[in-house]
Amino acid sequence: MGLLSIIRKIKRKEKEMRILMVGLDNSGKTTIVLKINGEDTSVISPTLGFNIKTINYQKYTLNIWDVGGQKTIRSYWRNYFEQTDGLVWVVDSSDLRRLDDCKMELDNLLKEERLSGASLLILANKQDIKGALTPEEIARVLNLENMDKTRHWKIVGCSAYTGSGLLEGFDWLVQDIASRIYVLD
């Protein structure tokens, strides 16, 4: 439905980016957002609805929507699709049992027309855990190579505990979005 996007487009401020963070419950989305924002990550409860963080990143303002991934609230994800510039899909690389679930939910998401223009960053999180799959293995399980050719995407291994990989991922995302939307107009 084009209506909401039109309004948001008009209201949109210069240099603002809307980022949607999704992924199965327990994958580490909230921990990642807080870590990037330099906040304390020692007490985090599972997300009951969603959080929004406005973060200044390089010369951009990121509006990061961190939506809970528990089964009950996955149906709310679609409320946040409109006008998304960047999609961050977070994977718990140590949760081998639910990789199928993870693939299925991601596949569904990528069929969403309202997300078709969004750059996709896949964060293979929890790399600090012994036994976690590498980003290459995750890419194979999720069959990323067969993704729609028009999609801009990248997978990065990271750890919200140590912080490694987070900036590499977000740097790419922000650059990719910027080159799409700000150079063009």
């Binding site: 693939k103 969403e112 293995e137 194979r140 399980v141």
Partner: peptide, 20 residues
């Protein structure tokens, strides 16, 4: 106009099997 996600294709088992 409709943006409902299309039926979940259950037949997506075709991804290369990797041994975990």
């Amino acid at each position: 106009v409709h943006t409902e996600p299309r039926e979940t294709a259950k037949a997506e088992k075709s991804n290369p099997i990797i041994t975990i």
